[in-house]
Design a protein around this nucleic acid. Structure first.
Lengths: 258, 258
DNA sequence: CGAGCAATTGAACGCTGTCAACCCGAGTGG
DNA sequence: CCACTCGGGTTGACAGCGTTCAATTGCTCG
């Protein structure tokens, strides 16, 4: 009944952990579907766990499954032939990943932290499209959002300085976490990835990242609690420093865009 | 019968030019569909012409139609608040553009050269999805390809030098044109955009572009016929100079990847 | 305690952006 | 026919940001 169960167990680690039924709780893949579609999907969807650094899907590898992030952070990355790596996307909980109607991938998907995902066999998922067009529709919308993010990030990489990129990253991370953890409204942000990944994401080096952070801290805009956690002392100034999103105060309590 | 005809005529220039039925010739929007779908689509699709510099769709503007490029080049661009512009995509003939299920756009679409497009009203197009799922399927695939290109270009912008970016651009343009004009197999490439757009696309300045081109020319790898046209003297070296696609000899006659 | 890794800091070099001048072809008008 | 203007492209000088290389610190883990 369960399709391709062992085919999906590419990692010994995963196989030993085993997989459990997706309970459709906090799972973007399954949430907000019609009852019938949700039922069908949860029949083929499984939770899987990965430890930091594990490869979920290799670059140029076969795309066996699609899914969404339940907890942790995944990185979409490309490796150049000289060994340098560029992260083209970070996937936080509720983000979807994978491709449909494509056999091979152009990016590697790896666990940037210990992570849990909810996934299902790609071909089985595609077959559901015939009976539940809403699923394909959802994939289309997810792809469109991903494209928007990619084009936006591309612009950031091409036009902003390293300090501006760091500031933009912190602002967005703050918004992201603030919007998910309702009511928390903390002025601290926790960067869920190491400096090396951050550098690969921001298109620079760990040294430049470090210098930018320390410089911003010396300016009194942020405070470094530990290498992964920052207190945002002056969000307004941080946004100004980012020089990018400044008109964009969606999550600010003061001026809410109409 | 024709939906929203006058609503689509936002440009006086276009209105005066008028629109003609799409004949489904050399039109990615209409080609390769079932006869019935093609017939339905061609009923609502129209050719439109734009002169260089005209705006087809404003950034943050309402998305009234979707379509594909028939001739000429369109640029997808974002404008920063300080006036700088970044081109996040170039659309050549047969490329599709536009979004479905989204009211506003995050990029501006402008004619980089005189251009002809084949387009149709977005909402009418979406309505066809119900009867012809293959259309939505096609949009999904197009979106996925666009995302791949965006992630690839992002990597290029973040990791390569200006000279490498220029070389990569020339190599790809050469492949692109060589694969479309079957049999021509010319060693000359014609850059269809001005230096200003090229700089905005490659994430640099016109001065750096010029220096890179002249340097590559002095190395004997290319020859500048005129500012828009180049002769590729040594494709192998140009690919090596690009430092990016070198394993990727899809269009080379010598070693064809399996 | 030592090994190893992540992060930071320092110094020097180099790519590239900025500013400026110049070239050149296309219009334009006398 | 020539002078002028204008825009696109090229070239030069220079400064600055960021990479590279190197050293140091602090932490974890065996």
């Amino acid at each position: 009944m369960i399709p391709d169960e062992d085919q999906m167990n590419t990692h010994p680690h995963i196989a030993s952990t085993g997989s459990t039924r997706c309970q459709t709780i906090g799972c973007a893949l399954c949430d907000n579907l019609s009852a019938k579609a949700k039922q069908e999907l949860s029949r083929i969807a499984r939770f899987r766990t990965y430890s930091a650094g594990e490869t979920i899907l290799a670059e140029a590898g076969e795309i066996r499954f699609v899914g969404s992030v339940v907890s942790g952070v995944l990185r979409l990355q490309k490796t150049l032939h000289d060994g340098r790596q560029q992260i083209v996307g970070l996937l936080l909980p509720s983000d979807m990943f994978g491709r449909v109607f494509t056999h091979t991938s152009n990016v590697a998907i790896e666990a940037a932290t210990d992570a849990m995902i909810c996934c299902c066999d790609r071909v089985s998922f595609e077959r559901l499209f015939l009976r539940f067009p809403e699923l394909e529709h959802r994939m289309l919308v997810a792809m469109a959002n991903e494209l928007d993010r990619a084009q936006d990030w591309m612009t950031l990489l091409a036009t902003q300085t390293v300090t501006e990129r760091v500031a933009t990253f912190l602002v967005r991370l703050h918004r992201e976490t603030a919007s998910r953890a309702v009511g928390a409204r903390s002025s601290t942000v926790e960067v869920p990835i190491c400096r090396r990944d951050l550098a690969a994401y921001l298109g620079t080096t760990v040294e430049s990242i470090s210098r930018s952070i320390q410089h911003t801290a010396r300016s009194g805009i942020i405070r470094v609690l530990d290498p992964q956690r920052f207190e945002i002392i002056d969000l307004r100034q941080l946004i100004a420093l980012s020089n990018y999103d400044q008109g964009d105060f969606r999550y600010s309590p003061t001026d809410c865009a109409a």
